[in-house]
Design a protein around this nucleic acid. Structure first.
Lengths: 333, 333
DNA sequence: TTGTAGGCGTTATCAT
DNA sequence: ATGATAACGCCTACAA
């Protein structure tokens, strides 16, 4: 491996000069600069990141801790983060499948000295408490984690607003028996979307019927299963609100298998507006979330706290918009 | 930040001893080990990654260079790589949106000293040539990049076999006018899938009709557009083979809008078998690829070459299987 | 069994 | 404008 010393020797200067050229510091004569640059490029030199970060105390890398996330949500988040990080000259160190407190702890430790800050997504409400340990010790942005802790920068989706808007829409179109396919029990987003469902029912003067509540795990399969058991209810619900699009799509396929028409026999709505939602048959009504932007914002938040550690932690919310397609029978937008 | 010195001072030993305890080297008395471990955990010490990798010459991180990839393909690849890396005690440094030669060069350089090896996915055939520069200088695995270069570890999908099997299936069911929605021009996977289409037509004794060839970019929208223009052909094709599922799904929605029935009026088939394929209406016939496994294999390949740099480069192919659902009108499996 | 000291590749601080 | 040299945090001969 070619080091700064090799370049220095070859160019007949000291390592200090090479370093100065590389970081285009002042006080280097044009000729020297020129000569060193030439040698460096001829030798294929580029500085050793670890050595550099040892002395500069900065790694130019962001850590990203994710839970076991599937589908497009996962990829869009990473894309958003990476895009923003890259433009600021940062890399991202990704570690996925961290759900429990211990896993998060371990990941945090093993990233020490390798990243300048971290974006942590842990929708599991339990795991949240772990994090309080590292208050202030290290720049952290919490993604979709419940914004209880004012000690951190946090960013969340307007889950409650989005869900209640969608369910409100269903109510406005005359639905009274609206089933909900919820998400995992301890998941923050899932809990908020359920809360939105409740709010909208309350606003519509509809009593909550616990038998209309089904639990899924955000996967298509769980949506499919929930829809199947939901169809055995007497009287049958007239609408289904799923806590995410994947489950709504699973429900759609279950309805088709049962010979029910959507939206005539059953209205269906989801949440997230994944790219495929509009291509469903029928096109899926859903709550739009700009997932990539969620990642971008998180990265931006982290980068700015890296530049100015003294500023107050911020709590951001990403807004949602209702996207009415034909699966819920409302007016097509 | 607490360093090895702090622990040493607090525990009343030398830094060497702390280091030994941490790397459980031999020759440390149980009492000392115990005491040092206690102090370390009390102080919340964990070694500084950069400092460590400077001396050990290993970072325990793998670089992952990806093109601008959308959808579930992207996330499954990362999941597969990360999963394997994590079990081996490695992190992954991800950098996406690298298509051109220059971008790849830059990313490679900026990762120097931060990773022990790299997984590079650059389906763009042009960019391939860049890589020849780093032959042997650095452990690299090429993912889906055309296996021309025997100098690298490579892993690809059985694109040609999968595509020809699917088109062969359509031919066997009596289709003679089979349109193809291909992928980007310089994309390796796309080129191979097109080649499979040609092979199957040839085997079926069907002359290639260039007017049946459409070009997409792997997105739903491009599939939608291709299908629309394809419908204006006289006589109309009876089947569509799309180079990936996203485009097939886009085509499906275009057909629906035009009032055509699938598979009665038009058979449709895709490639990849993304999780959502089975939930389409009608369920999508496609060529199954275990994308996460593709990532796993790539990581495994890289890790093993890290352990034994002297071994011969390997060229792996990931097999595909035909998944016949109802969108292509064949017998349902 | 433990400690001392040198060095990994780089930047920062002094000199010159 | 350039060069010597001391850090950065850690590991590892080698010495004790």
């Amino acid at each position: 491996m070619v080091t700064i010393k090799d370049v220095a020797r070859e160019a007949g200067v000291s390592v200090a000069t090479v370093s100065r050229v590389w970081n285009d510091a002042a006080f280097v004569s044009p000729e020297t600069r020129q000569r060193v640059a030439a040698v460096a490029s001829r030798l294929g030199y580029s500085p050793h990141g670890a050595a550099r970060s040892l002395i500069t105390r900065t790694t130019h890398a962001l850590g990203v801790l994710l839970p076991d996330l599937y589908g497009e949500f996962f990829s869009e988040i990473i894309r958003g983060i990476d895009h923003t990080a890259q433009r600021a000259g940062y890399h991202i160190l990704v570690s996925s499948s961290h759900d429990s407190k211990d896993e998060i702890d371990a990941a945090l430790r093993s990233m020490r000295g390798r990243v300048d800050g971290m974006i942590i997504m842990s929708p599991d409400l339990e795991a949240q408490r772990t994090l309080h340990a590292l208050q202030g010790s290290f720049p952290v942005v919490l993604l979709n984690g419940g914004a209880e802790s004012r000690a951190f920068d946090t960013i969340t989706i307007e889950n409650h607003e989005g869900a209640s808007a969608m369910v409100g829409h269903l109510v406005a179109h005359g639905h009274r028996r609206i089933a909900m396919i919820g998400g995992p029990e301890r998941n923050y987003d899932a809990a908020e979307r359920l809360r939105g469902y409740r709010t909208a029912l309350g606003d519509g003067g509809i009593a909550l019927d616990p038998s209309l509540l089904f639990r899924g795990d955000f996967s298509e399969l769980s949506g499919h299963r929930a829809a199947r058991s939901l169809l055995e209810l007497e009287p049958r619900p007239t609408a289904i609100f799923a806590a995410n699009d994947s489950m709504a799509i699973g429900a759609l396929s279950a309805l088709r298998e049962s010979g029910l028409r959507v939206p005539e026999d059953m209205a269906v709505a989801g949440f997230d507006d994944i790219p495929l939602a509009r291509y469903m048959n029928p096109p899926l009504s859903t709550v739009h979330v700009d997932i990539a932007k969620l990642g971008e914002r998180a990265a931006t938040l982290l980068l700015s706290s890296l530049q100015n550690g003294e500023r107050q932690p911020q709590q951001l919310q990403l807004s949602t918009t209702l996207v009415i397609r034909s699966s819920c029978g409302g007016p097509v937008s």
